[in-house]
Each structure stands twice: as structure tokens, then as C-alpha cells.
């Protein structure tokens, strides 16, 4: 069953002058429990596609259905609410909140959602323990390594039980060991808990672990390989 479905999707910049097709007529579906990489050279439209799917940007044309809802017609405030409830984000630069501890960062989205404190504590503590950070709950981001920070970011994205997780170059700033640890952790979450992951990446280590690889060239779908 598709959790994401785009139909005739375009994102065109400078439409009035010299049009640039950042996303060029992409119709694609992503199913639940997939571990998908979107790859392609720089400027191929990977990040733009993820931004459109994540409701961070609006398409020039076409439709986007996420978790059964058209997000391309939503207002900005509806999209913010939708992102909060349905999508988990992992960013290249971790983007943790420096003044919050690992636990507080990981619990942040659940608290924004207004989930009960007890439920939040159980879920977040359990996940942080699961990713090997049970003893770093009260550490601030500045006290964590890059790999640990990214694991906190994954837990933050996961904690609220989103329909899928969008990860934009999640291993770009990690050393090899930290990258492998993170990928193993995400793969395990995908296999054990059926979490759907959608990556944009250049990193071969991520591509090697993907169950599906979508390649974009010049904003258009070039290939779609299922493994």
C-alpha cells in the first residue's frame, strides 16, 4: 500500500523567464516498510523531491498524496500540522536544539503533539536505549559525538510514530564507523518495526543497504530499482 504517491509532479523555478525544471514530471509511489534511496548527481532534484514530499515546498504542478491526504492543496499552517503528525525528518546537520538534552530533543516532537508525559517518557527512553544512548539521556548536543547526535535526531523523528521518515543526506557529516552504526540502526528499525525510510543521498554505504534505489537525472525519474 503506498504511503506516498506523486502524480505528474513538477517543480519549476523561473517559470516566467528561463524555466528550470528541478522536478520534472515525476509520478512515483513509495510503499510502507520500504527503505528507499533517492540518488542522483548534484542538482538532479533529490532534495527538491524530498522537500515536496515532506510538505516543505509546494509543487508547480501535479499532486502529492501522503498517508492518504493531498498535501499539495494544503495551506501552510495545515502542512505544518501535517508534518508534525505524519512525517519524521532527519537532516544532514543533525539540527538538534543545543539548549535541550538528548532526551528533551528526542521528546520534543511528542511534546509539540501534546502527547501525555508518561507515554512520551516511556517511548523516548526506550528508543534512546534501543539506539545505545540510554546512558546519555541528559547530555547536551555539544557533549555528544556526531554519530550520537544523528542517532538522537533519528529517535526524535521516530518517537512520534510518523508514517515515514525523510532523511536528507543523514550520513554526510559522519565518519565511517558512525555512519555504519547509524545505518545499521535504521535498517534494524526498518526491518523490526516496519518503519518506512526515504533517503536522499550520495553515500554508497546508504545505497548498499537500500531495498529500493530511485535515480533522478535533471529532475526527471531515470531509474527505479527494487532489490
Amino acid at each position: 500500500m503506498p504511503v506516498i504517491e506523486t502524480q505528474d509532479l513538477f517543480k519549476i523555478y523561473n517559470e516566467e523567464t528561463v524555466p528550470v525544471y528541478a522536478v520534472n514530471n515525476i509520478s512515483i509511489q513509495f510503499d510502507t516498510k520500504e527503505f528507499t534511496c533517492v540518488i542522483g548527481p548534484s542538482g538532479s532534484g533529490k532534495t527538491t523531491l524530498l522537500n515536496l514530499i515532506g510538505g516543505l515546498d509546494s509543487p508547480s504542478k501535479g499532486t502529492i498524496n501522503v498517508a492518504g491526504q493531498r498535501i499539495d492543496t494544503m495551506s501552510e499552517s495545515e502542512r505544518i500540522r501535517f508534518r508534525l503528525e505524519h512525517i519524521g525528518f532527519v537532516f544532514q546537520h543533525y539540527n538538534l536544539i543545543p539548549v535541550l538534552t538528548a532526551y528533551e530533543n528526542a521528546a520534543f516532537i511528542m511534546q509539540l503533539q501534546g502527547r501525555p508525559e508518561e507515554e512520551t517518557r516511556e517511548r523516548v527512553t526506550g528508543l534512546l536505549e534501543q539506539v545505545g544512548l540510554g546512558n546519555r539521556l541528559h547530555a547536551r548536543p555539544s557533549e555528544l559525538s556526531g554519530g550520537e547526535q544523528q542517532r538522537v535526531a533519528v529517535v526524535r523523528a521516530l518517537a512520534s510514530k510518523p508514517d515515514f521518515i525523510l532523511a536528507d543526506e543523514p550520513t554526510a557529516n559522519l565518519d565511517t564507523k558512525a555512519a555504519f552504526n547509524l545505518l545499521d540502526m535504521m535498517k534494524q528499525l526498518n526491518e523490526d518495526e516496519g518503519i518506512t525510510f526515504l533517503f536522499s543521498t550520495h553515500d554508497q554505504r546508504v545505497i548498499d543497504r537500500a531495498s529500493r534505489v530511485v535515480t533522478l537525472v535533471d529532475g526527471a525519474l531515470h531509474s527505479d530499482e527494487r532489490r
Binding site: 516543505l56 499552517s77 505544518i80 500540522r81 508534518r83 508534525l84 525528518f89 537532516f91 539540527n95 509539540l112
Partner: peptide, 12 residues
């Protein structure tokens, strides 16, 4: 970047 991230993850 931090404020952008907060809005991206769903802070209204």
C-alpha cells in the same frame, strides 16, 4: 537554521 528546523518538524 534552528528556527527553520523547528518549523520544518512541525512547530507552528
Amino acid at each position: 537554521r534552528e528556527i527553520g528546523m523547528l518549523m520544518a518538524i512541525g512547530m507552528n
